[in-house]
Amino acid sequence: MSSVTAQGTPVTRRLRWPFRGIIANFAILVILAYLVLAVLGPVLAPYGPNDIGAGPQLSTPSAAHWLGTDGLGRDVFSRIIAATRPALLAAVIAVVFALVLGTAIGIASGFLGRFWDSALSRIVDLLFAIPEYLLAILVLAVMGSGLVNASLAIGLVVIPRFARIARGSTIEVNQRHYIDAARLCGRSRIWIMRRHILPNIASPLVIMTAINLSTAEAAYAALSFLGFGSTPPDSDFGSMISSSQQYFLTHPWIVAFPAIAFVILVVAFNLLGDAMRDRLDPRSRTTAGA
């Protein structure tokens, strides 16, 4: 009896909230909170993020300035809120860029095989063989820094991961009988790739996307720390930390608060990635959460 009710109607099954466990749901809540801050930031922030002299310089956390002020008297809390927008944007731009290009490369090389496979795989292997940060920094040295360029550089560096996963899964799916059936029906290769391959390799790609959101997030902060992020005075987690380095020894909170805000976001993305994997990867369920 219970098995019948547990299955329910197709509609209710599809609408069920996919994530179980307190940790995964908490992570999603945290990410949503950051999203709200990113969207409504200008409304919610008590001061303008770039207002020099919003308060006294280097003041300790107080009622007027919850998280203190930095060396130019800018409100740290407002700057942290302003930093959420570029942080989330960078992660999304980088991962979407890598997802689209990497998937296209991976499907093409896995499905078309032969010449295409060896040519595309060489390129992917080559990208993999270059140290990620060096590649990103060189690209940015030529293209110039900034939010979009930094995100695209990160995306470029992450492409091989998506391409490899997409290629492997495509080769697996390509051996199924329904692909042969579609071929016999005279479907074009583009049609098969779009209608049969893509939906069937979606779940490993979704896992990769979720995992790489946190990687991209951290990479963007690192690049912005090195001075390749959004242009000053706009705030970024990375540049907030690097520009306050000189005060860090005497006024640690100027560095500590952005660092904490940033680490919470990365941990949340990490946990989201793990939750996606647990949810979608059939293998991870058997290995005791490895």
Binding site: S214, A222, I241, S242, A259, V263
Partner: peptide, 8 residues
């Protein structure tokens, strides 16, 4: 710790 990037 893994979420702490090298710059932090």
């Amino acid at each position: 710790i893994f979420a702490f990037p090298a710059f932090v």
